[in-house]
Design a protein around this nucleic acid. Sequence first.
DNA 1: GATGAATGAGACTTCATTCAT
DNA 2: TATGAATGAAGTCTCATTCAT
Lengths: 228, 228, 228, 228
Amino acid sequence: MESREQLLAVALHMLAERGYAGVGLRELAAEAGVTTGSIYHHFSSKEDLVRSAVDHYADRVVEQQQDLLASDAGAAERLWSVVEWLVAGEADAGWRRDFSLVANVELRKLPGFDSTYRRLRATFFKLVREPVRRGIASGELRLPEGATVEDVVSLVIAGIVGSLEMHAQRALRVPLDRQLRLHMATILQSLRPVPGAATGATEERRSLAGERTTRAAHGAARSRAARE
Amino acid sequence: MESREQLLAVALHMLAERGYAGVGLRELAAEAGVTTGSIYHHFSSKEDLVRSAVDHYADRVVEQQQDLLASDAGAAERLWSVVEWLVAGEADAGWRRDFSLVANVELRKLPGFDSTYRRLRATFFKLVREPVRRGIASGELRLPEGATVEDVVSLVIAGIVGSLEMHAQRALRVPLDRQLRLHMATILQSLRPVPGAATGATEERRSLAGERTTRAAHGAARSRAARE
Amino acid sequence: MESREQLLAVALHMLAERGYAGVGLRELAAEAGVTTGSIYHHFSSKEDLVRSAVDHYADRVVEQQQDLLASDAGAAERLWSVVEWLVAGEADAGWRRDFSLVANVELRKLPGFDSTYRRLRATFFKLVREPVRRGIASGELRLPEGATVEDVVSLVIAGIVGSLEMHAQRALRVPLDRQLRLHMATILQSLRPVPGAATGATEERRSLAGERTTRAAHGAARSRAARE
Amino acid sequence: MESREQLLAVALHMLAERGYAGVGLRELAAEAGVTTGSIYHHFSSKEDLVRSAVDHYADRVVEQQQDLLASDAGAAERLWSVVEWLVAGEADAGWRRDFSLVANVELRKLPGFDSTYRRLRATFFKLVREPVRRGIASGELRLPEGATVEDVVSLVIAGIVGSLEMHAQRALRVPLDRQLRLHMATILQSLRPVPGAATGATEERRSLAGERTTRAAHGAARSRAARE
DNA sequence: GATGAATGAGACTTCATTCAT
DNA sequence: TATGAATGAAGTCTCATTCAT
């Protein structure tokens, strides 16, 4: 196999496992089946190698996301596609899980990765935002009271990010696919348009702004306890 | 302040910022206002220092969680308490955000931290599971069709973990408190007992197991596309 | 002895022997009786070590030259002092010979040593120029026809530099002190004021500008031969 | 041009600029317009390449010196020829300046270059010694009191070496040709036969041996001051 | 003859850790 | 307890040299 590809693959894996500072070039080279010095025929420095690895796989992820973005299916259908894509990606034992960890955790620490980082985030946000926005425009979906499109997008993405990371950490106590599907189902349910009495539950739901006048005492007590 | 306390605080912060391998004892000592050699009067090694820092703050977190666990309020009320506690913790600029990052990201990489890691996770899971379980037992809550208590707990925790991490990474596009509250509200809504026709949405919701008979063609196509 | 002093001394010596790129820190440390890593307690880098060594000894040289500059003796007397100082310096087996080589040969190649280099040169030039200038002003000396003060200064210094370097290279076939004294005696003789017919040798001496009209043929032949 | 010639030329130049250890074969090859591996088709090792470069140019220098040696002109005339040859060599921007630096500075450091080194020195010394010796034998020249032929030869060569090196270092404050001509003129003047009372300056000139009886006190004081 | 990726020894530098003061 | 110079293993990187193409 190509030395360069091998190095990229091993670099991503080690980066996910140990973080940038924990990556040792000697071990990395050995695991890729080349000698330490050979790294410098393909990359100009450790940082260049790591950056190349991240960018290489980021490109593949973004490509896949572009395919998903190009769909002309309905809103719910497209959101389910995202779930299927995530499940498929995490199911194989390949680079996708490593990439999730790197993108979510390590990328921010490395200097000069802002653009890659932003590109990944922006594409992923769009992948969720587009279906939601269009679904609402077409009446297929309906925002919960007081929520904006961005609120819903954040909700979806935070759930996905948390699920993937817990899965990668082996801290998820249910299968990942089940987790992601239930997550999406729950969100979609809260976006389902109800012809009748809207949701009528307003008086019971908390304000999203956090000021709860009816239970000030409880709130204050809780805040005090939580402060330390 | 005590040298030891200072060292613990700086260690947690640097661990969150740079990971275990990125922590340098010289810089750590300098930032804590002590000399390099002094570290070894308080701790036997770098690992001991880091372990002590994590354990020290883990103790404080678990204590706070124990307080929350001891509550005898209703199910929804207790879940809201968790949200309030999280919001309060992340709001201050203190150790809580650093600890979130360390607990979610770094802890798994360090050898010998399994027990701390498990203790933290177990307490946090219990913090969510207890109210849900009791709420269902008392009829205050009602599980969505096909979901188990553990499904719901995972849903809640993944959303929280994802939200906190995105917040820590400054990738969250809405305020953290708004995000967490909307998350909890959405979950609680899906757990709300409906006197009438249950949810009636069964025919539209996907099975959580992933086998979708009605749209086999689409699904196969998507899967193929998503594989690469 | 002080590690730092040892390192400076060994660094100067190795620099003289092998040049900057030829200096190996491992060997340098071993020769100074310390471990490789210890170098970095005293100096921030190889370049810092070398720079410090050069500057350290340059300071001592400049100090000694300042003492010589402060003399209020006659012109010839002061020029002889310079010779005596050089002879004394080169006679011992200490740092002076190494420093000569470094200052004359290596300094120019190292980046960032311009100021040290200029300081050394400037002081040394002044050491020769001052006595010459004053001797001429007072009538103690007298410039050869067509020569300027700077010509004479360059003459003196080039002879000294060449002598020291050949000595350092063991290419000088007479003792250094004898060489330097004869050099100075010859120069002083050419500066001796003659009461009678000036020098009268004008018609025999070549023009310093190089255009020799009377021997064009010879010159052309020579030039042809010399061109390759 | 021939790859081999290019490599030799670039090698000489880099050797002059950076010294043996500072020469990198990759960069050298690139600058010569060949690939790294190609070097080993022409030379068996880095040392072989450098040795070949020095020897190649040394041959050309020695050839030119042989031409000068073959002259049957008068003593002064032949010494002036040396000056003209030097000036012509340094005037072009070609290999001669690089070779001066290498021969004077780097050659001594390289193992195995003793023979080249000696050959160069010996020829150059002969180039000066022959005219002086013959000029004295024929009465065209006359040694200063107390000086030997070798003294004068050393004087001439040290002045030349110092001048060339200062010129190469851009530390010479007068034009090189003017410097060399004034140097030779001064030497020749001191060798001019005076029909009358010799030079009569004996009582004023210092003994070349260094023992100055008439100014013991001054000398002692100076020595003390110069020692440090 | 020419190429350039591969090699592995050795370069400079940083690290956690120790210890005499 | 505190200090900070010393240690030596390990880190990243460069080098001269080789070899399949």
